[in-house]
């Protein structure tokens, strides 16, 4: 199987600080790929390079996207989104004042506009355009169902519990029809019950949709359960790359997580 995302020699320097140092890895469309590492290992920086928030100092990020092979490092953030890369944030960024359903519809804005030929009639929702709108609502409903949130469709997004907001964020990202979904610490702050719901949603995305998932996480236990493939970073360098079992047994990973001379696990 060809790689969905290929990261080659990715390096990001901020002045004298090298946050990500010569990292290379690949992610498959059929996998949940985890990028893990202790705090400050460069996970989020690596993520921001892939999703276009930063422009990497050195290196290439290649995506087998919707419209063929693209070099992500050359595109601005908004264009990257159009190539089929969706992301969520560590601190949830929903449109709080809008309902859950509206959050999912707004994510389909571009598709809706395309359906209406970018006309003013489409902007104000003319009848000829309602078919596209209905399809958008159907898709939104589908993802609400997958996220277990059908009952909350008309609630203001900001009033939902934390775990539910997380799932809305992922559902919203999926409404943009991504080929790659990037999740920044999706399990942070979730209780075990919410965490299990989240995993379920991730499995659905992996198994029933042609969308690869890249997630970063510093909580090992989460990553070990959901990921098929793990990349471990420490001080900006890649120290391990493999299946959860391989990574767990890797001495370099154990050292990075537990310290060199401190009490061994």
């Amino acid at each position: 199987m060809t790689a969905l995302l290929t990261v080659e020699h990715l390096t990001m320097r901020f002045g004298g600080l090298t946050a990500v140092d010569d990292v290379s890895f690949t992610a498959l469309a059929s996998d949940i790929t985890g990028v893990i590492g202790p705090n400050g290992a460069g996970k989020t920086t690596c993520f921001n390079c892939i999703t276009g928030f930063y422009k990497p100092t050195v290196g290439q990020v290649t995506l087998a996207g919707r419209n063929g092979i693209v070099q992500l490092e050359q595109l601005p953030g908004a264009k990257i989104a159009r190539q089929g890369v969706a992301r969520t944030f560590q601190n949830i960024r929903l449109f709080d004042g809008m309902t859950v359903l509206e959050n999912l519809l707004v994510a389909q804005h571009h598709a809706l506009m395309r359906a209406s030929g970018f006309t003013v009639l489409g902007l104000i929702g003319w009848p000829g355009y309602t078919r596209a709108e209905r399809a958008a609502i159907d898709k939104a409903r589908y993802w609400l169902q997958q996220a277990g949130l059908e009952a909350e469709a008309d609630r203001e997004a900001g009033t939902l519990p934390y775990g539910a907001q997380r799932r809305v964020e992922i559902a919203r990202a999926m409404c943009t029809d991504p080929v790659l979904l990037c999740l920044d610490e999706p399990a942070a702050g979730l209780n075990p019950r919410e965490s299990a719901d989240l995993n379920q949603l991730l499995y659905t995305i992996r198994d029933q949709h042609t969308c690869g998932i890249l997630l970063i996480e510093h909580d090992m236990s989460v990553v070990m359960t959901v990921c098929d493939h793990i990349v471990v970073l420490d001080y900006g360098r890649k120290i391990a790359d493999g299946t959860p079992a391989e990574v767990k047994a890797d001495p370099a990973v154990i050292r990075a997580y537990l310290g060199e001379d401190e009490e061994a696990a």
Partner: peptide, 16 residues
């Protein structure tokens, strides 16, 4: 309304 609340996020979900 989405742009009003969070421009970056609005751009990320494909709003011009």
């Amino acid at each position: 309304r989405a742009t009003e609340q969070d421009q970056t996020m609005a751009a990320l979900v494909g709003i011009d």
